[in-house]
Design a protein around this nucleic acid. Structure first.
Lengths: 405, 405
DNA sequence: CGCAGTTTGTTCGGTAGCAGAACTAATAGG
DNA sequence: CCTATTAGTTCTGCTACCGAACAAACTGCG
């Protein structure tokens, strides 16, 4: 209630910025038509934005009848978002401008020490990227960091992040803020991947969809009504614990979920081993099993088929509960075309009106792009959305490959 | 975007009404403190509301230091909501005042003819209730009707409503509007039940919870972030189609879901019949099986245990995907304490941090109360929320049993 | 009883953000 | 060059709000 304290100051600045972002160069008159605000108001707002350096005059229209119009655009490098995808093995950093174009990218192996060492690694990568792009650090206004775990916004810790030592015992958010000197948002990496797929990937424009990342483990992200579903303890999308596949009441299922034990890579390899007469030898990697299946080997094919069947049941479960308009399959295993096709083929066998299924289009970049999306949205809210608590920014149209300045 | 056309007229009227609703008699000064608006503004808004008849002076404070304050309250009978719960066998109607108190209630057997006959039955019940409560029909501003099916807001039809003939072939919403001469909102009955449980039942105040209605069939409702999850085709919560229990890839599972075939009443009875040496006799009703289990009969106990185990898996599936803070069990079977207890006992066996489980507290009234909740929220939005698209009304504290005038 | 202190409510003046009408400016096409 | 058309500005005015000053009403204490 007391959030109505500072009331609708500049209610429309956001709307103007949005129009400015989406219809690249646009005149004030057109903005007025689109937003429904009066020409007068738009002129005023645009003047303010221009004075503040967010917007700039970039040209004039001509060709049509009537007076030619001055067109404006958002100044793309007035502020930047640092998008970070922290994985167990690699850190990926992308510096994104106000339009969402990735201006600079960098990747490194994640420092195995974890904790403060990784925090400083991320800080260094971001600042280096900014420096290399000729961007002063004060223009990097927010950093969004995807982590393989469940960030707890109140303590700044990251729970369930076995791959990054100490992240569950320190205030990661605060540490990063200290290094980067800007706001930092932590988010689960799969959640970012969903956002990425919605913005520029396989789920463009949809507002209800699910994402399944199948690889070493299995994880999911769910978007409902354009909003990420986090759940009560930030544990939404823990698909590994779906109660089928292995026996969910086995003691082992409490540690590694019943579903995960069978569909994820360890399960696939184990099934192949048993099927081929299971020596206790190291066994086959999953890509090898896939290629053998491609070559027609019956055992490999059977294992892949079984996996697809399980995955289809996972998809069906999500569909029964949340009824998304699309399920995007990602991760090293899920995004393989063989897998997506099989799942798609199986679904009509267990759902009367099967969900749409698509392979991730952004692959390993999804989380990075999602981080940029969230960062941009937050940035616009902070800068132009004084009131209107959490308006969703409808982001600019995906413009592939920014000028790698 | 063009929704910003008529802009923030009376941005705060809603906030004032909300305060007025929740802290029963309240002075203007206190409203000012709570909302953060100035005393001056509050006085103005309250004057308007009073002139329009929504609010009335009801007393003065005294006892504290300082000038005594005039206190105001919402005029409870300035407008009414007709809440309707249409079931296959019974129609239940409740007339609710602005505070949410049920002023009048009525129940009848649903007319088996369906279609227009049922529409007129509902209309008659509502108008009779209003008349009996001494309320002119013009004060009934909105009707919320819970139906056993999936209402399609664009066509006004109700899909998947086998129990009400013709409802899938006519514009039910329009027909009801014609009879009642007020706005009509159709909503799935389970969805209403969830809302009811959130407002006054087992899920009070929670903003992420699931509801499972287990009886003749099985259905679910999911609330995430305070918002109902409808899904892409209004088919969220079709728990019957969860891909376990029976074989999901059987042809039969396309018609009646794999999960529903086993957990719902037909499945329970079938399992009991096979277990007791399955004659093809009519068999036992579910309540009878429950009472035999209560009496210690092994076969009945086993069947109930199995059902609970299945239900627990259903709960686990929802928890894995959406991670609600509570799962409410309802329906004639789900809300039995034996069932809730068993499920609660089983969950630690298949989830490392088990969800809370509770039996429905409102029972068959849940949908009616949920309808009232939605109606009130809509009403307040329509009356006092000129802008601010779909603000959620935080409803007044549950005040049990209104004066049955 | 009367005054201090405290709280309520009103009056008055002022501001931000917007609309709308009237007007000026620039352009294309004939 | 004139007309139709579109872009942008100026001016007036409204609504919803704030803040300060002030009036009104009450409690409690000396």
């Amino acid at each position: 209630m007391s959030r109505a304290l500072q009331l609708s100051r500049q209610f429309s600045k956001r709307a103007v910025m949005e129009a400015l972002l989406q219809q690249a160069p646009i005149s004030r008159a057109s903005i007025a038509k689109q937003t429904g605000l009066s020409k007068q108001t738009i002129s005023e707002i645009v003047r303010h934005l221009e004075d503040a350096g967010w917007v700039i005059e970039t040209g004039r229209t001509n060709g049509q009848v009537g007076r030619s119009a001055v067109t404006y655009e958002v100044v793309p490098d007035a502020a930047f978002v640092a998008a970070v995808d922290l994985g167990g093995t690699k850190v990926r950093v992308g510096l994104t401008d106000l339009r969402g174009a990735i201006v600079r990218e960098a990747t490194e192996f994640t420092r195995p020490e974890g904790g403060q060492v990784v925090v400083e690694q991320i800080g260094r990568l971001c600042l280096q990227a900014a420096a290399a792009a000729g961007v002063g650090r004060e223009r990097v206004r927010i950093a969004v960091v995807g982590v393989p775990g469940a960030p707890d916004p109140s303590s700044g810790r990251v729970r369930f992040a076995p791959n990054i030592p100490d992240f569950d015992r320190m205030d990661v958010a605060a540490a990063l803020e200290a290094v980067l000197e800007c706001d930092v948002l932590l988010e689960n990496d799969v959640n970012l991947a969903v956002q990425g797929e919605v913005w520029q990937g396989a789920g463009q424009g949809l507002d209800t969809l699910a994402f399944i990342a199948l690889g070493t483990g299995i994880g999911g992200g769910l978007i409902v009504g354009g909003e990420l579903v986090r759940g009560a303890d930030n544990a939404a999308g823990e698909l590994g614990f779906l109660p089928f596949g292995a026996d969910p009441f086995e003691a082992e299922s409490l540690r590694t979920g019943a579903f995960e034990r069978l569909v994820a890579s360890a399960g696939i390899r184990a099934r192949y081993r048993t099927l081929t007469g299971g020596t206790d030898a190291p066994g086959m990697t999953v890509p090898e099993i896939f290629s053998r299946a491609g070559a027609g080997e019956p055992a490999a094919t059977q294992v892949i088929d079984e996996t697809a069947c399980l995955l289809a049941r996972g998809v069906a479960a999500i569909a029964a509960i949340a009824n998304p308009s699309l399920v995007v399959l990602g991760g090293s295993i899920g995004s393989r075309p063989e897998m997506t096709e099989r799942v798609r083929a199986l679904l009509p066998g267990c759902m009367s009106s099967p969900v749409d299924v698509a392979a991730s289009r952004l692959g390993p970049q999804a989380a990075l792009i999602g981080a940029a999306a969230i960062g941009l949205s937050h940035l616009h809210n902070a800068l132009f959305g004084a009131d209107a608590p959490e308006a969703k920014l409808s982001l600019p149209p995906p413009r592939q490959a920014g000028s790698k300045a």
